[in-house]
Design a protein around this nucleic acid. Structure first.
Lengths: 344, 344
DNA sequence: TTGTACGCGTTATCAA
DNA sequence: TTGATAACGCGTACAA
């Protein structure tokens, strides 16, 4: 298909009148080089239009200059609709943006990998062990995922975004979800809310359960030992449904904490439909500070998630571990802040 | 770093008691194999835990099973803030989702590449010619970008998402932006709007100028030869500002077409501030049908952009071209539809 | 400081 | 059908 054979190290050497090894040294900037030749070689490189072949180089150096972004999904979601929703959500893009902000500077590339089955996970780890990439950033979606352990057991440098559901000796960055939920609780209380409820995400994903726990603890500490909680699945529609049933069971509700902005959007719709004014009749606090929060009306008071920073830190952590595999396993937890807008 | 040497083809051959070549044949499913050995070899593969090394394989086959997603940006945006906005926008994620929906099935991986300088573009093309990836999907952001031509001249299989600003013999998928704008015009007219304006994107990007042209043509055909147009840059804030000045200059406005949903969001804010009710006093039509459209209040009537489908088609096109480089250069144009919600 | 020669892990060619 | 053996393009001991 590509017709003309591309120039190789050998060709450059011939043009420069030196050995292949010398050209290699010049290109890789190795010290012991006669400045004379240095120039001659670079000249030959220019004339031939030589570009190093990264594949061949990686094969011998065992370094690819590539990091894998692994999205580990559960089997049940292996069909398109879910994945499509996942990508359309700003979450994915913000992670990529954060990662690239540090990887790009280092000339490191990002390779996207999606695995939805145990078999896929096994293949992935095999490829990574073979040096397909120098390491992996892992976005683990299933509540309980064997991948983190598989990676550590395979000695693959890896960093998780979001803590693992089960304890595994692996680096990760995470958000203090419980603190964020506590901020929401405090804000609602300070506002004077008396009957406070919550719409949570799935119980088995760590980020979700942490938000529930943090919210409960904070309220309990201020005398609210019992909190009505309705469970959604982080989609807009589930938020709308949850709000409806929550309202039906607790008509006197005057404040609600929704575990993410998307569900909060649905909640707002349900409240509008029920004729409740936000925030006058009922205050709403979201979570994530996604773009949906500003678009909503009233604009959402929400908990800001510094996702780009977290992803950037994950990238730095991974690069460090690749450099020094013996580095102590570490985790970095980010503190969220409350962003006050109109809804609470 | 990785301590234990991984099993290689040689190791499997030794265990199976055959030659390396035979093992290779079995693994790649080549016909001429004694069924007896077939079994012996697979057994040895299992016992050794062998995983083929994709790098080594690619080096000789000249196929990587990887496609590059290239984001070609202009130099001025080379700093982080812009890129960060780009990734946070659902646009990027939807493209990735669409691409993956077809690539994943074929076991093809996606490698993200961002280039912001001419030097970077040159390096990129060099790497691609070297077989770093089998082909490239290109997201070209600058109004005029040398990359498409560089790719065709380098004989690199590539497909653009969005037509090139200058004619280049390269495959691309695009949206009928002019038709979309015409739909918006028709809708506003049908609604009874008499004084219609537009908020456009930057004049030099094709998608943007096509929308302006289509809108103008459709209105002219219905007797509205002159349309006040204010220019924004596709951000929310620019939409808000544009709406303000548009309104100041044309107080009697009763309908406006905004070239993307994000700017429409800003426009809604400006209108709210100006005390105009939407859609009663003034109807608003957006473009993209992004998640912002549903989140907005009133929810945006907008032009739906089947971005996932377009990206998927781009992936199919690329795969086909990789398979047959001599294939006729082709373009696929998608027809948009109007989604009616509350704002118009 | 430079060149020779080997190895990285595969696939592909050609005899046998 | 199988097995040597030569590529693929490069880095790097080792020797000169």
């Amino acid at each position: 298909m590509r017709t003309e054979r591309l120039p190789t190290l050998e060709d450059v050497a011939r043009v420069a009148g030196v050995s292949r090894a010398t050209v290699s040294r010049v290109i890789n900037g190795i010290r012991n080089v006669d400045p004379q030749l240095h120039e001659v070689v670079w000249d030959a490189v220019g004339r031939t239009g030589y570009v190093p072949n990264r594949l061949a180089r990686s094969l011998v150096t065992r370094r690819t200059g590539t990091v894998a972004l692994v999205v580990s999904d559960s089997e049940s979601h292996d069909d398109d609709p879910f994945m499509s929703r996942f990508f359309a959500d700003p979450y994915f893009g913000r992670v990529v943006g954060g990662l690239m902000s540090v990887l790009r500077r280092q000339g490191v590339q990002l390779a996207l990998q999606i695995v939805g089955t145990d078999d896929g996970r096994k293949r992935l780890v095999g490829d990574l062990r073979n040096g397909q990439a120098d390491g992996a950033i892992v976005l683990s979606l299933p509540a309980v995922d064997p991948l983190p352990r598989m990676l550590t057991e395979g000695d693959v440098p890896a960093v998780l975004i979001g803590r693992p559901a089960e304890p595994v000796p692996i680096d990760y960055v995470d958000l203090a979800n419980d603190t964020g939920a506590a901020l929401a609780a405090e804000h609602l209380l300070t506002r004077g809310c008396q009957r406070i409820g919550m719409i949570s995400g799935p119980a088995d994903v760590p980020a979700s359960s942490d938000r529930v726990a943090g919210f409960r603890r904070a309220l309990a500490r201020r005398g609210h030992g019992w909190v009505p909680i309705e469970t959604g699945n982080f989609t807009r529609d589930s938020g709308e449904a949850a709000m409806r049933t929550l309202l039906a069971a607790n008509p006197e509700l005057d404040g609600v904490f929704v575990a993410n902005d998307l569900m909060a959007l649905g909640a707002l719709a349900a409240l509008r439909e029920a004729g409740r004014r936000v925030p006058d009749d009922l205050a709403v606090v979201g979570f994530d500070d996604s773009s949906a929060a500003v678009a909503a009306s009233p604009a959402l008071t929400t908990i800001r998630h510094p996702l780009e920073d977290m992803a950037a830190e994950a990238a730095r952590l991974l690069l460090a571990r690749i450099e020094d595999p013996a580095m102590r396993v570490s985790s970095v937890i980010y503190e969220p802040v409350l962003v006050e807008r109109e809804s609470a």
